[in-house]
Design a protein around this nucleic acid. Structure first.
Lengths: 342, 342
DNA sequence: AGCCGGGCTTGCAACGTTATACGTCCGCAT
DNA sequence: ATGCGGACGTATAACGTTGCAAGCCCGGCT
């Protein structure tokens, strides 16, 4: 059986409340009393029951983080950063994953998967604005990532259009003219939309034509999806001289296919990814990528939730996180490797 | 303000307990009554307060999972599997990471980081047996992974010695004679120890000599550590014809260094990793690896915790999870790729 | 000496839920 | 007509904690 304040109080011969005072470092406790109670605590091995404390205080010290998939190293690294950021504020993180499926995202946003939480950080993929408009759950919600909603929620993301434009600009500056985009999304409206839009805008502003034949859709966002999409492009007979991928795993999957077909990166095809995952730093050809400031995103997400929790939050805000384009061998080649920032 | 049973009861003109009965689908409730209460629930948007329920029931429906680092895709994938396995039993997962640091692992095992949990799954790296012997926290603990303790806790792992022997056997069967091991751990006793032991045993049983010059230690378990270790081996002038790495990131980091120095994989050096992370499936040279059955590990871990929770657990058990050696290009070359199991 | 004030300790209530045990009502068998 | 049992609803007491307000004691001031 677990020991409670009552047991300690009985042992020390004091009231429950006095024990509570000792546990919580209440100031008006004589050293002698503190000593005596502490001894009883140690002897019995008392540990506060956090559930009871939470019930009493109306908060739990837990925030939930819901990500599409942990298998994607970007999200795994982001999760680690959120856990650390939350720990700074004495918060603990409950982790969930949605598979990027709308149904799961709705459940999470409605709090049906975890109802013990003070706040929620959600990185949506398919979730629609109407789903959020119908949201009845009242724990603070902060949105993460690429989707864009005109709704009264805090939203933290990098400027995907600008970041995508920087990536494509980099390819154009290298003299590439046939820049494919891999990782567009069939059917659903927004995912990948902003990066695709950046690709389009930058091509147009460079006076290049926008060719839908160079857009490849994918089902998911993993290596295999990138490989399949690249294969499809090549089978149409197109030979792009550059690829901008929705994310790094897709880029790496595509590079694998190129390697199988004897195409050289970057000589024949320059490749830029997105997310800057560690994996891209160590391939046979290292990957140029857009690097979002994950720590800042995690920090701002946690702080937004907590601010809203304490009621001091003003208007819902859209916050842009920093990013950098880090050029590596997949665009520069092995010898001339260097870093470049935007 | 949040609505409670009391509010619903007032609205429906019934007792609190009747509302509770409706919420919990208690059988003796007339359809008419159920209807009436349900309507009040819907009108007010009532949601049960799980904290109160947990206090009452003495359990929270939360289990904690503490892993060394999420940046390692093996652990990220394992976390995803645990979340899914827990969901099957209506449990939610609180995620923590220890950085593989003993101090953090002790805190976690003692429940200082999260005390709202019913059970704990911990994958230790530096934790010592004495730390566990001194453990006073009484929530069920299940250990995961490679470390080996003679203590009364459930422990789930693949047979690391046997798996390592299979990996080295594979290299020997291919005719390799100078098999390096990358990823040993300086100072601390056990991590990597079992895999190193398997390497040693298999070399000896094949009549080969065990050469400490072919053992490279690392600080961590990431790509960069593998790269640094490989560089050190090559700088001693040694030219192994095979590498068995502690895990896949280390193997991939090492392969990057080989590629930089013009060494071909597998022609000059055959490489085997451990963990079978997705990243290894898509490199320019795909990676042969020992593939632990992550889903089974996650499932057994969750079930062990829950069994112990419900008191039906017998003796603490050591459970061996399945694994397979999956041969890919880093040992077989591109054309002859195939899969092999043990 | 009596009073006041502050430091220390305590009892009580409440957070929202569910288990238990009880009360009521109805229908049916005696 | 009476009694009995089952179906249904409810009052009450917990679960373990903390905020509040009150009570006690003692030293110092008048």
């Amino acid at each position: 059986m677990r020991v409670s304040l009552k047991d300690v109080a009985a042992r020390a011969g004091v009231s429950i409340k006095t024990v509570s005072n000792v546990v919580n470092n209440y100031q008006h406790v004589t050293p002698a009393m503190r000593e005596r109670v502490q001894q009883a605590i140690d002897e019995l091995g008392y540990r506060p029951n956090l559930t009871a404390r939470h019930l009493r205080q109306g908060r739990t010290g837990i925030i939930a983080l819901a990500l599409p998939e942990l298998g994607n190293p970007y999200f795994a690294e982001l999760a680690a950063a959120v856990i650390d950021a939350a720990a700074l504020h004495d918060y603990i993180v409950l982790l969930d994953h949605t598979g990027g499926r709308r149904e799961q995202e709705v459940l999470v946003s409605q709090g049906f998967r975890a109802r013990v939480i003070d706040g929620l950080i959600l990185s949506p993929i398919e979730l629609e604005a109407e789903d959020l408009r119908e949201r009845t759950e009242n724990v603070p919600l902060v949105l993460l990532g690429e989707r864009h909603y005109d709704l009264p929620y805090d939203h933290i993301a990098v400027d995907n259009v600008a970041a995508a434009r920087a990536a494509v600009r980099h390819l154009i500056d290298l003299g590439r003219r046939e820049v494919a985009f891999i990782g567009a999304r069939r059917g659903h409206s927004q995912p990948a939309h902003l990066r695709l839009q950046g690709w389009r805008e930058e091509l147009l502003s460079a006076g290049l034509s926008v060719d839908d034949g160079l857009i490849a859709t994918t089902e998911g966002w993993g290596h295999a999806d990138g490989a399949a999409a690249m294969t499809r492009i090549l089978e149409t007979g197109r030979r792009p001289d550059a690829v901008f991928a929705y994310n790094d795993p897709i880029a790496i999957g595509a590079m694998r296919v190129m390697s199988e077909r004897g195409m050289r990166v970057p000589e024949d095809v320059a490749v830029v990814g997105f997310d800057d995952v560690v994996e891209g730093h160590f391939g046979t050809v290292t990957l140029t990528s857009v690097s979002p400031d994950k720590e800042a995103i995690a920090r701002m997400a946690v702080e937004s939730v907590l601010a809203r929790l304490s009621g001091q939050a003003p208007e819902p805000r859209r916050v842009w996180a920093d990013y950098r384009l880090i050029a590596r061998e997949s665009t520069l080649g092995r010898s001339t490797q260097a870093a470049r920032s935007t």
